[in-house]
């Protein structure tokens, strides 16, 4: 009985704080995306007119954790299969945040565009027993500015 109450409390805490954190994060992402809109990002490798430019590598990364509620929902979803929207929003958040951090670094170097952007996702585990569910997203590319 105590276990059940403990579990429900954790679930509630995860739901309340997790949803609030996610909403706040999305608001801040949308806000910063507006500010950084003038920095263009391309996945194209060839840069036009590249002899008039200077390039350097820029990276941005973020580690985002799942909350108790999301994990519970995902476990339930595992039974029947299908879209796990709890994790979709988590990954979307992480990816947009990583790209934003990369853009911020590009702005610090004075660049106007970033080329050949690559995204890499990896999960972080502590171990099977007391596993920590977290995902790291790294975004990197070549920022160029006129010389």
């Amino acid at each position: 009985m105590v276990d059940l109450i403990f579990f429900l409390v954790l679930l509630l805490l995860g739901y309340v704080f997790g949803q609030r954190a996610e909403k706040r994060h999305f608001r801040s992402i949308i806000e910063r995306e507006k500010q950084l809109r003038d920095i263009l990002v391309f996945s194209e490798r060839r840069i036009p007119d590249e002899d008039k430019l200077d390039g350097t590598l820029v990276c941005g990364s973020v580690v985002v954790s799942v909350d108790f509620f999301k994990r519970f929902v995902a476990n339930l979803r595992n039974l029947v299969g299908g879209r796990v929207s709890a994790y979709e929003s988590l990954l979307e958040r992480a990816r947009r945040e990583a790209i934003l951090r990369m853009k911020e670094e590009a702005r610090r170097t004075g660049a106007k565009s970033v080329w050949n952007i690559r995204l890499e996702t990896s999960s972080i585990y502590k171990g099977a027993q007391q596993s920590i569910g977290a995902v790291e997203v790294l975004a990197y590319g070549t920022a160029v500015k006129p010389r």
Partner: peptide, 14 residues
């Protein structure tokens, strides 16, 4: 990180 695993959010330390 274990605590954050309940509440969610960014793991700044990591």
């Amino acid at each position: 990180a274990g605590l954050k695993n309940i509440f969610g959010g960014e793991l700044k330390g990591y």
